[in-house]
Design a protein around this nucleic acid. Structure first.
Lengths: 110, 110
DNA sequence: TAGCTATATAGCCATATGGATATATTCTCG
DNA sequence: CGAGAATATATCCATATGGCTATATAGCTA
């Protein structure tokens, strides 16, 4: 699990890769489309994509000639879960909210 | 802001540093106390602390002979805010919860 | 002030990272 | 099948990172 967190956090520690995720949040995209906004070579982008994929943040598809990428949200949930332990430190409403929800009838968190 | 996110994510991309944060979540600690659980030299720990401090994740105090560290939650909030844009991808209840809260009387999120 | 404690800094080394260019691979299509 | 398009891999280079040992600095305390 530590290894997973290492990979995810370090994948996110780069503005190019975060921007790529931002693009993928709007939907599937090819490598060429992902590379377009950047002044970087295609291999550089492929390298970034590999880092993101190995961290589990994205997945590769296969479509005719291209290998479109899609977002893989589970990895983000992994770090969100890690952060949950700290949430009380900055989110003053968190404890109260949690408490509140547990008392509300008819609300199910799936 | 990108630089800030770079620094925070890359500070978190190391298990030693995350463990240090975990310790600090339980309260202020000296460098010696923070170093204790690890099979690392004192300078190595000091280096990690510097990384955490430069990312804004911790702060140094001054107390007699020692320089105790404390958690600085604002930095964690920074990445939580960044992640908020993606939350809808994994948290199915998020939209519903958000919607629900906006309709609840008497609840104020500060 | 001298010495002890706590911590920081300097310097060194090995490995990792991010970029580039050149080339290989894999499909699609005529 | 041969050409072109889309992407991956191989190399190479410069810089960053994480660890160590040795040493410097700062504050107590006798």
């Amino acid at each position: 699990m530590d290894d997973k967190l290492d990979a995810i956090f370090s994948a996110l520690a780069d503005p190019t890769r975060r921007a790529i995720l931002g693009r993928l949040a709007k939907g599937k995209a090819t490598v060429a489309e992902l590379a377009d906004p950047f002044a970087l070579s295609q291999p550089a982008i492929s390298k970034h994509l590999k880092v993101l994929e190995q961290a589990g943040l994205i997945r590769s598809g296969r479509e005719a000639n291209s290998r479109p990428r899609v977002l893989e949200p589970a990895a983000l949930k992994t770090i969100a879960d890690w952060m949950a332990d700290y949430r009380r430190f900055w989110d003053q409403s968190f404890d109260r909210l949690d408490d509140y929800l547990s008392k509300v009838q008819g609300y199910e968190n799936d």
